[in-house]
Design a protein around this nucleic acid. Sequence first.
DNA 1: CCCGTAGAGTGGTACGTACCACTCATCCGA
DNA 2: TCGGATGAGTGGTACGTACCACTCTACGGG
Lengths: 273, 273
Amino acid sequence: MNPSPEPSAREPLYAQIAQRLEVEIETGVLQPGQRVGSERSLSQRFNVNRQTIRGALEVLTLRGMLHKQPGVGAVVCPPRLERGASEFFHFTDRTHQQGQRPGAKVLSIETVKPSPQLQADLDLATASMVQRIRRVRTLDQVPVLLETFEISDDLVPGLRRFDLERRSFYEVLRTEFDLWVDHSDQSLEAVALNKDEGQLLGLKAGAPAMLERRRSFSRDGRPIESGTDLYRGDRVRFMTTSATIALDLVGHIRDGSLPQPLSLDGPAQTFDS
Amino acid sequence: MNPSPEPSAREPLYAQIAQRLEVEIETGVLQPGQRVGSERSLSQRFNVNRQTIRGALEVLTLRGMLHKQPGVGAVVCPPRLERGASEFFHFTDRTHQQGQRPGAKVLSIETVKPSPQLQADLDLATASMVQRIRRVRTLDQVPVLLETFEISDDLVPGLRRFDLERRSFYEVLRTEFDLWVDHSDQSLEAVALNKDEGQLLGLKAGAPAMLERRRSFSRDGRPIESGTDLYRGDRVRFMTTSATIALDLVGHIRDGSLPQPLSLDGPAQTFDS
DNA sequence: CCCGTAGAGTGGTACGTACCACTCATCCGA
DNA sequence: TCGGATGAGTGGTACGTACCACTCTACGGG
């Protein structure tokens, strides 16, 4: 493989090879269970060094498309849920794929004094204020998600100017403020909606919902944004591959920025039958 | 660094170096934000090739402990939630860490004919039966989790013999049947408990719960086990780092192996205010 | 006919070299 | 004093070589 056979924007060799192999897998030229060929034979086929092939295969292995075994070879894996899922979930992108019309309604944009917890979470200077944005997201006019973002006022001066009903929040952060979200910590809980939340989501109080708490970080680990999202339980399912999920067990976990839930849970009965 | 300075069970050099650097980070010798040193200087310090250092740094980078930037160097990242979380969640392990006493009660072990869906999910031969195990997991006597496993009868002959009240299911699969779970696809939904489920979990009907559906696979991609777990919403929180989570939007998603939910959701109101 | 062994082939590790694009601090000239 | 050029230093890529442990197969002896 020549250094630059096509005018491809100077993609590294190993990435080009990984992409070609990926195409062969996606198109079915290479079937699940089938060997991709040994590293040595591939290095001859593509006329590159074996280490370069190893780089290409490593890419595909990390994406879960290949499975390597010493003494045997590299085998194509059957497709998994959400292959190559180091990307972020974006509501708008996802929903477009499924042919549903997404919408958003901004409920409020407030400048508020952060709680001590939030101050610590966002690593704020003592005097900093935060912007709190609340939105309702809809699909085909049906409300599905109640969002609350909190972000340091210093990071997003003049945030109110921008159209958060038509644009993705992360897209605005990237484009207008050069804030690139790299990764995030998240937690998921099942909760019951209170009356207000239910009204906003088109459900009765007490209906089950998924509560997501999130903190987003830039590449160098500085916190960018903190969020609390409520998803309708009857319209949303979270999917994940290869359990990177951990469990947290606590007494009472719902507090702070959202109103208290209805007390649907009875007294803590013991279980013995 | 000599090939084997200590009698360490012939761990690769790059892994040994990664571990030593990890210790320096964990103990605070290297602080978050601090540089670990250039690859070239580290290769002198440890007296190994630069590529070997790159291998060590790659390990730590993939674990989210380091952040590398061309032209700058490798910097120690602030600790994230669930660092190095390519491991699986195990109820027993997790709970031990938090000093709570886990318990389990087997409700039933049945040999049943699989539904067509399950037959496809587990890639079963046409005549195969499945074992269905239902357990309640408790913490300090409080029921927290209602589990349902389904696994091909062929894979686990004589499963009933083993003590599933005191042993982890996956541990039994490994030890007794040489079945090693490598990865799994999972989905999470918020649902309302019905009367039976509520009784088993010590809650009223209608209380929110987290429904996890799961399929576990061996390294070569063959399905091992299918599971449906119900977690008490008021006792459990799922945590994850770096969104590998995707969203699935559907009309009605609860079906099949578990009873129907209460009809808490009202008529599908449109949202316009 | 069966079983164990030899050998070819595989991925994993480790060494070495070379060059590139990029960052950043320093220095020099306007 | 300011601003742009420069160069040392960084990680990224790509080549090459060598050896190891492991797997699988094919052959040959019992």
